[in-house]
Structures are given as structure tokens and as C-alpha cells.
Simulated scan of single mutants.
Amino acid sequence: YLRYLQPPWGNDDTQRILDILKEHDVHVTFFMTGGWVESYPDDVKAIYEAGHDLGNHSQNHKNMSQLSDEEKTQELMSVHEKVKELTGVEMQLFRPPYGDYDDAVVLNARENGYYPIQWDVDSLDWKDYGVDSILNTVLNHKALGNGSIILCHNGAKYTADALDALLDGLKEKGYQVVPISQLIYKENYHMDVTGRQIPDAK
């Protein structure tokens, strides 16, 4: 899976990314901040209409573990309501900013109807090292395997340039890219020490 973090500061590549995903008949998950949703409502609708997951990346991109329970809920639900108003979607996937979480963040997200999501393959596209770096980092990543979640960023300089070859490379390795809503277990699972979901024995 690919997941796209929508940073609050950029939108130059959204349509190009959507076009490439469509060419490959691939659906992914876009995690959006409240500021991004407010700035680019038409793109939120375009992502939804193209069949991709809409995910919550908080209102203000703060370290969630440093906030009170009430503030955590506000960070989640203000974006939730904005996206619901635009698309009718009740989002269920939450990617904590900076990957910063603790038990309280996880419990708060669950109480608000969200599944917290982390990644295990960081494309490092945000470092702007170039297309080859993105491809090498992802396709040769030691953690890449069934169930992997790949982190990419819409506002990074080379991500759109790398995407076509990245999708081809993943397919050549035998992987099918799906949105996170189709990847995760929603019930009857436990977590291993790496944070992977393991289905409970029947």
C-alpha cells in the first residue's frame, strides 16, 4: 500500500498523482490535515471521487501525545466534520503527525471511531534526494513485504516523478497496492512487537 500524506503547504502534484494512480488502476489512502482540506476542498472531492481512501492527519499537525484528551479529540473531529461536509464520508483512518503516538493517542482515536495507522516503509521522498533514491529506498527496503504500508508525501519534490516506476516495481515484485481500508483487520486481531496486526486464531 501506498499512503499519501497531504502536507498543509502543498498541492502542486495532486492531480498528476491521481492521473498516474488511475493509469495503474490503483487506489491508495490520502491522509489530510484540516488546513489542507480547507485550502483545497475541490481536491478532497477529487480524491474521494477517484475512489481513494480519505484519512485524517489531524487539524493542526501537532504532536498528539503532548495534548490533553479533549485536545486530541478536537484535532481529530474538526477535520472529520470538514471532510464529512465536503464528501459525506465518515473517515475511520488516522495517521498521527510525525508518527508520534502513545497508548493515550491510540485509545482516544479508537474512542472517536478511528483506526490509528503507522507505516513500515518510509520512501524518504520528503528529503528530496531524487527519483532513484525513492525507488531504491522503497523497492529494496528491508521491511517491504505483505501488509507493508509505504509512506509518500504529496508535497515532496520528486514523488510524482517516481510514482509510475514505483508502482511498476512493486507489481514486478508481486505486490498488489490497495488502500489501507482494505489492508487492515478491523476486529479479531492482536499486535506483535513491531506493531503489525496478527489475526487471532479461530
Rank of each mutant, 00 (worst) to 15 (best):
L21N: 04
L21T: 05
K22W: 11
E23S: 09
E23V: 04
H24P: 03
T29K: 07
F30G: 00
F30N: 00
F30C: 02
F31R: 00
T33C: 13
T33E: 08
G34W: 10
G34C: 11
G35R: 06
V37D: 12
V37G: 12
S39R: 11
P41S: 11
P41C: 11
P41E: 12
D42L: 06
D43N: 15
D43H: 10
V44R: 10
V44F: 03
K45G: 04
Y48C: 11
Y48A: 13
E49K: 15
A50R: 12
G51Q: 08
G51I: 12
H52G: 00
D53Y: 01
D53R: 02
G55R: 13
N56A: 00
S58L: 05
S58R: 05
Q59L: 11
Q59M: 15
N60K: 11
N60F: 02
K62C: 04
N63E: 15
M64Y: 01
Q66V: 14
Q66S: 15
L67D: 07
S68G: 08
D69N: 13
D69F: 08
D69A: 09
E71Y: 00
K72H: 09
T73D: 10
Q74H: 14
Q74F: 11
E75H: 07
M77E: 08
S78I: 13
S78F: 05
H80W: 02
H80Y: 03
E81Y: 09
K82M: 10
V83W: 07
E85I: 01
E85S: 10
E85G: 01
G88M: 12
E90G: 06
Q92A: 07
Q92W: 03
Q92P: 01
L93I: 08
F94N: 13
P96H: 03
P97V: 03
P97T: 06
Y98E: 14
G99D: 06
D100C: 11
D100P: 14
D100Y: 07
Y101V: 00
Y101H: 00
V105Y: 12
V105D: 14
L107I: 14
A109G: 02
E111P: 01
N112G: 13
N112I: 10
N112W: 14
I117T: 09
D120C: 01
V121A: 02
S123N: 09
W126Q: 13
K127F: 02
V131R: 14
D132A: 12
L135S: 04
V138R: 07
V138W: 03
N140M: 09
N140Q: 11
H141I: 06
K142F: 02
K142N: 10
